[in-house]
Design a protein around this nucleic acid. Structure first.
Lengths: 139, 139
DNA sequence: CTAGGACATTGGACTAAGTCCAATTCAAGT
DNA sequence: ACTTGAATTGGACTTAGTCCAATGTCCTAG
């Protein structure tokens, strides 16, 4: 993610302290923060950053294809910086923790045209659900 | 779905006009209404039914496994009465319309244990996205 | 290096979806 | 029909997110 700022600048993105901080917060593997969590962490580095700016910036990053929006549960959307390697998600039904996973196989090929109802299908999202090791132990 | 009421009564569900109306509204194939849509249709049949009751009843039907909760987009949850035949969803990215689909293959088998991170995986949800015929024509 | 305009940020009001609760009503067993 | 515990009600509340007009700031041309 360290070159994200480079890529963005190359695309004509105006660089500001706020945007830099949001991008820094999102750095890492298996990171799936909500907008509010991003805001909370951003405030530590830049106390005057506003919620609206965090939403704006996340929205732009999604539009630019640098970050994925993930809505695994009914609660808040989460933002996944691992946008350049396609992947799916494994979610703990109890605590909600998320891991990126890479199943074999191609689910797109598994949808026969008789099951497409005339749609032009362009994308598949797979969400695995179960209990994480911690929640298994606690139960 | 006509025997739904029977099954529920058999499970000790107390029958009320409100619950009957909610169950009736949810009847059918490829039905995926939001809670508010359910309420709107229920009000036609039973003007004094409240939003809270619709939410309560839908929640109970989900708990009993008679209806599935589907959150395909970022907007409101939808309720799918087709809970007894396992299936996945095909969603139009533009207008949000939903079809039930039955892909071949078994995505659960496609997740090697090295990709399970110690989770006990129990369920998979697959969401296909694309444009429905109407939205294709309009674009 | 500076000026200025386009773009970004702010915070507060607003919306949508859903939850919660105390008071009331009602289904159904006896 | 009585009783009682479960179901319903509506309104206040919460959470997640959007919108907007006023203000601030980046960065390029000069």
């Amino acid at each position: 993610m360290s070159d994200l700022l480079e890529r963005l600048r190359g695309r004509g993105w105006r660089m500001t302290a706020q945007r830099r901080v949001v991008a820094e917060v999102l750095d890492g593997e298996h990171v799936h923060l909500t907008a509010d969590e991003v805001h909370a962490r951003a405030v530590v580095k830049l106390p005057e950053i506003s919620r609206a700016t965090v939403y704006n910036t996340l929205g732009e990053l999604v539009t630019l294809g640098e970050v994925l929006e993930v809505s695994t549960d009914k609660r808040a959307k989460r933002y996944d910086p691992n946008a350049h390697q396609p992947h799916h998600h494994l979610v703990c039904s109890r605590c909600g923790s998320i891991r990126d996973v890479h199943p074999t196989g191609n689910p797109l090929a598994d949808l026969p045209s008789s099951e497409r109802f005339g749609f032009t299908v362009s994308d598949v999202e797979v969400t695995y659900r179960g209990l994480c090791p911690d929640c298994m132990a606690a139960a």
